[in-house]
Design a protein around this nucleic acid. Structure first.
Lengths: 212, 212
DNA sequence: ACCTGAACACCGTTCAAGT
DNA sequence: ACCTGAACACCGTTCAAGT
């Protein structure tokens, strides 16, 4: 057993990840800077680079740590319902964490821990009668929809919190009814009409449209 | 006619927008900083703030300027085909401009100029037999899917340009076949299987699943 | 081996002053 | 009215030096 030499570490990867999670939970992902994180672990920003390559790697570690704890619900046996349930579970796991969607997008497919969801989605699609190739297509389409919905919902939430009239409201207020008959018919009701969640409706439509 | 007083302007909003578009076209949206833009119009960064409120407003102006020139193809009469064609046109208009998707996301619904697309999508959905409310839902679902697909495709392109093995490849290399039977079956073929475009397939599935 | 301080090369934006 | 220079309050990251 070789004696390890050198200065003993003051901080660890695990400690960094825990602190980073705390920062995100308390003040959002925008507050997660290397300097702030260093303060949180009682060190300097530069010390962090001894434990993680860069900020991107840190975000990937964060995602992995979260994925390991994400809920993995029991799924129904019937293939279509199983697919819908797996997609909804994936959506729910990420919906409060749009930063995680950005991390996933940056390197395609989920982290190791998050593979639970695509595995079940592809599996359900095959059980429903698709070839492997078609099932992978179906997964990707569902993933794009899911990622898009989560990003949009997060943006809508941020907009609501900021308050004030949105650009959209001003545009709708003086919309030319001749040029945009349908949209001016909807008009002021847009906010109300789009307040409810349509995620599940979309997934069901995709399942209906993609499976034989 | 009142004589306007004060120093005559050296730069105009239109000039700024044109220069900003040139920067984005040449070096991407990441290169569009207030300082760089100022250099491009032969002025200082601070002078720009006399013509646009902030960078967000500038991006919105940019989007409006682009939307006014975006292609508006002839659409087929048959409602389902019309809906698909309108969605594809929207996708094509934005697919090389993921920054525009981010701008649109930030304030829900498109800029005035870009309303051409949702107007036609909602209209086609109503013609196909949906109520106005259902048609708005359908539009939103299609928009989320479209936005998600464009962001993912842009990320994939960036990854390809950077080169090197991706995190995904490393994860797939040592995947536990017992835990992930379907994904390890696909395994190394993931890259090949996901190389083709699935946007239209997804839109068709949505149309099939959403319309009566 | 691990940590630190200073510095680099950036951001968007504000403010007070000039013309 | 419009523009400028200096400055503020940040970023992620590198580098040389310390223990």
């Amino acid at each position: 057993m070789p004696t390890r030499t050198g200065r003993p570490p003051k901080i660890s990867r695990a400690e960094i990840v825990t602190a980073a999670n705390r920062v995100i939970e308390e003040d959002g992902v925008a507050a997660l800077t290397m300097r702030r994180l260093a303060k949180e672990v009682g060190s300097t920003a530069m010390a962090l680079y001894h434990h993680v390559r860069d900020k991107d790697e840190l975000l990937l570690l964060l995602l992995d740590a979260y994925a390991a704890t994400a809920p993995r619900p029991e799924l129904p046996e019937e293939p279509r319902e199983r697919l819908v349930a797996a997609a909804v579970a994936m959506h729910d796991a990420l919906s409060g964490r749009p930063w995680a969607v950005d991390v996933l997008r940056a390197d395609d497919l989920l982290s190791v821990g998050a593979l639970w969801y695509p595995e079940r989605i592809v599996d359900a699609a095959v059980r429903a009668g698709l070839t492997t190739e078609e099932a992978v297509d179906a997964y990707r389409i569902i993933w794009h929809y899911t990622a898009g919905e989560i990003s949009a919902a997060a943006a809508a939430r941020a907009r609501r919190e900021e308050g004030g009239t949105t650009y959209r409201e001003r545009v709708f207020a003086d919309l030319d009814a001749a040029e945009f008959p349908r949209l001016s018919e909807v008009g002021a009701r847009w906010g109300e009409l789009t307040a409810h969640d349509t995620y599940v409706k979309g997934v069901r439509a995709l399942v209906r449209g993609l499976l034989p």
